[in-house]
Design a protein around this nucleic acid. Sequence first.
DNA 1: GGCTCCTAACTGAACGTTCGTTTGGGTAAC
DNA 2: GTTACCCAAACGAACGTTCAGTTAGGAGCC
Lengths: 210, 210
Amino acid sequence: MSSVDLTAPALSDRKISILEAATVLFAKHGYAAVSIRDLAREIHTTPAALYHHFPDKDAIYTAALRHVFSDRAKALGTIVKGDDAPDVTLERLIIWLTQQFSDNPVLARLVQRELLAGDRDRLRLLTEDVMAAPFREIERLMHRLAPAKDASLSAASIIALVMGYVQLTPVLEVLTGQRNTKQSLKDFAAHTKNLVLHGLLAQPQPKAPS
Amino acid sequence: MSSVDLTAPALSDRKISILEAATVLFAKHGYAAVSIRDLAREIHTTPAALYHHFPDKDAIYTAALRHVFSDRAKALGTIVKGDDAPDVTLERLIIWLTQQFSDNPVLARLVQRELLAGDRDRLRLLTEDVMAAPFREIERLMHRLAPAKDASLSAASIIALVMGYVQLTPVLEVLTGQRNTKQSLKDFAAHTKNLVLHGLLAQPQPKAPS
DNA sequence: GGCTCCTAACTGAACGTTCGTTTGGGTAAC
DNA sequence: GTTACCCAAACGAACGTTCAGTTAGGAGCC
C-alpha cells in the first residue's frame, strides 16, 4: 500500500476492462469497502481470475488509479493553446476545470479519496498527473494578469474553489432547495471567473472618492 | 434559553469515551477500514463490551458523527454577535471558518467522508448541524454587502473555497515545495477575504475611466 | 489435414484470517 | 436480587489469497 511504479506497463484489453470496473467501484465505495469478490462479480468472472492479471488487491487499486489519472492533462493543451487575451483563457480554463470534475465523478471521487488517504507516493502521483498541469497554467495566467499578487495562492484558490463546489453540491441542494443543473454549473463558472478577475485584478484602491 | 433538546440521548461518560476514540479512527481510516476490534483495542476493552453500549457498528458510527457534528454552530454566535461593519464581520467569519476546518482534522475528514458517502439522512445531518449556520450567516452578510449578487452562490463559494483549500494542502506542499504553516493559513484567510470583498463588492463597472 | 506441445486464461474448491455479532457467565454496586 | 458492566469464547459469514486442474488457441512439424 505504498510504493508506486512510475513506468507504464502496456495494459492488455482484459486488464483494462478489469480496471474500468475497478475504478467505478473504488470511486463509489472506497478501497476497503470493495472486495475482490465484488469486483469479480461486476465483470462476471471469478476472484481467482483476477489474480491471473494482478498480484493482489493493492495492485489493482494502484493500477486503477493510474488508469484514471493518466493523460489527464492532455485536453488542457487545446484550452490554453490559443493566443487569446489572458482573461479569456482564464475563463475557458475555469469552465474546463469545473467540467473536468463535475462530468467525471469517478475521477473526482478518486481524487477526494486520495486526498483523504494521504499516502505519500500516491499523493505525488495525483499531484503530477492531475493537479500540476492546471495549477501551473493558472499560475502562469495569474502571473500575467495580476503580477502583484501571489500567483500560486491564486491558482490554489481557483482549484480549491472548483473542487470544493463540486463536493458541496449535495449539501447545497439541501440548503437552497434546488437541484443541481447544467445551468447552475454554468452560473458557478461565470461567478468564479468574475470573482477572480475582479477580486484579484482590481487595484487595491481605497474607497475614498476622488 | 429554555428550549428542550428532543434529539440528544444523554450520553454516559463511557459512551462518550467510546465515541471519542471512534471519531478519531473513523475520521482517519473510514467506516469500512475500522473494525470493532480495532476500536475496542484503542480504548482497552473488548468487542463485546462495545455491544453493551451500542446495538451495532453502524450505531457507533452514527453516534460518533452526531457527537462531532453537534453544537458546531455554537461558537459562531460570538463571531457574528458584534455590531461591526459587515465586511469586518465577514473577515472574522472567514478566518473562523478556516480555523474550524484546519484546527479540527477529525471534523474536516468526517465531513469529507460524508460528502463522499452521500447517504441522504446523514447528509441532512451534516447540512443542518455543520453547514447551515455558517452558510446562512455568510448569505446574510453578502446580501447586505452586495445586494445585486446571488448571496447563496457567494456563500457557497466561500465555504467551498475554504473546504477545498484545506483539502488541497498536501498537494500544494508538493506543488509549491513549502510546508503548510500557521502563517500560510493566515495568508489564505486574508487572500480569501480580499478576493471576496473586491470580487463581489466591486460594482460591475467597465474599465472606461470616468 | 492431423498431431503434439505450449501457454494464457480461467475455474472450483479450499486455505487461514478477520469480520460483525452473540452467548453465557462473572463481578461489583445498589 | 436486580442491574450495569464487562470478559472469554465462540458463531457463521466474508475476507484476501492460493492451488490443482481444465479449457482454448496458436505454433511447429509431419
